[in-house]
């Protein structure tokens, strides 16, 4: 599935990254706790969160997260969107709660990861 195909699944709006919607979505992670995101996330992950501060984008940058979905109608500040634009991260917004957004993505075939990140070699 691509980010573009994810938009109707989540009834989402694109807040930035219009030109980057054809990237593939492999896994997803739903959390307001960046500490956990840092410990679990792998490749090509979509992050669904209700937390709207600039650290969400910094965390996404470190992990190569290419798409952030702000749930339950949370609207990020212009500062956050500016950071996302600079980093080339697609930002979506949905009225659904984090729980529902994750459920909708799961039903659409996107799985999460239960393994800790960094397990290598």
């Amino acid at each position: 599935m691509t980010i573009r195909e994810l938009i109707p699944v989540l009834d989402a709006r694109v807040l930035c990254g219009d030109d980057k919607l054809d990237q593939e979505v492999k896994t997803a992670c739903g959390s307001d706790l960046m500490s956990d995101v840092l410990a679990f996330v792998k490749d090509k992950t979509v992050l669904i969160t209700g937390l709207t501060n600039v650290h969400v984008m910094r965390t996404a940058e470190m992990l190569d997260i290419h798409c952030v979905v702000f749930a339950r109608g949370k609207v990020p500040s212009e500062e956050i969107l500016e950071e996302a634009r600079e980093l080339g991260i697609v930002v979506l917004a949905t009225e659904h709660t984090t729980y529902t957004a994750c459920g909708l993505m799961y039903v659409a075939g996107i799985r999460g990861t239960n393994e800790r990140s960094g397990a290598h070699a």
Binding site: D32, L33, M34, S35, D36, L38, A39, L51, N53, H55, V56, T59, R116, S117, G118, A119, H120, A121
Partner: peptide, 18 residues
């Protein structure tokens, strides 16, 4: 409040490093 403080950082560093 910013989304940190889960006590995951040090073990995560150890896991990610060789």
């Amino acid at each position: 409040v910013l989304g940190f403080g889960a006590g995951m950082g040090l073990p995560n560093m150890r896991r990610n490093a060789d």
